[in-house]
Simulated assay, not measured.
Amino acid sequence: ARQYLHRHGVRFRVVRKGTGSLALYWRRLDVDRVLAGREPVRRRVPPCYMDMAGAVSMLGVVRSYVYRLVKKGLLREYRCRMKTARGLRVRCFYHREDLEHVRLHVLQKR
């Protein structure tokens, strides 16, 4: 937790105890800011969204092309944390309507 908070720029205050030991206190406003920016936790795939494998098979392209479409703004991406056997993992899903638009208009120009 200390590494995560430090990596995200959360400020802290060191307090010396009477016995010579030190205590580290993180600023609550900074911690709340970091927690508010995290992805929501979901149990199931959100409706109207597809995962990467579905998007790749629907468009018939490679994964890097899907990432490029997201970067250009032609494809909406939804990021959430889902519980797996290895803990909470960030998963990306892509809007089905945008995928159909890309398949019909963008890929026909080839």
Score class of each variant (00 low, 15 high):
residue 14 V to H: 03
residue 41 V to W: 01
residue 95 H to I: 05
residue 67 Y to P: 00
residue 107 L to S: 04
residue 77 E to T: 06
residue 88 L to M: 05
residue 4 Y to V: 01
residue 100 E to M: 10
residue 90 V to D: 06
residue 45 V to E: 14
residue 47 P to I: 06
residue 33 R to I: 00
residue 57 S to I: 04
residue 45 V to N: 05
residue 69 L to M: 15
residue 66 V to C: 09
residue 1 A to I: 09
residue 16 R to T: 13
residue 70 V to D: 05
residue 50 M to A: 14
residue 100 E to N: 13
residue 103 R to M: 04
residue 83 K to F: 07
residue 105 H to Y: 10
residue 23 A to V: 14
residue 7 R to L: 11
residue 75 L to P: 04
residue 52 M to H: 05
residue 70 V to Q: 07
residue 74 L to D: 09
residue 31 V to C: 02
residue 52 M to R: 10
residue 5 L to M: 12
residue 72 K to S: 07
residue 27 R to K: 11
residue 97 E to K: 15
residue 43 R to S: 14
residue 42 R to P: 01
residue 19 T to K: 11
residue 19 T to L: 09
residue 107 L to Q: 04
residue 28 R to K: 08
residue 60 G to W: 11
residue 17 K to A: 15
residue 98 D to S: 08
residue 37 G to E: 03
residue 30 D to R: 00
residue 18 G to F: 07
residue 60 G to V: 10
residue 82 M to K: 10
residue 24 L to S: 12
residue 54 G to L: 10
residue 24 L to R: 14
residue 101 H to W: 13
residue 79 R to E: 12
residue 36 A to N: 00
residue 103 R to A: 10
residue 83 K to P: 04
residue 23 A to L: 15
residue 69 L to W: 03
residue 3 Q to H: 13
residue 109 K to I: 09
residue 71 K to H: 12
residue 67 Y to R: 06
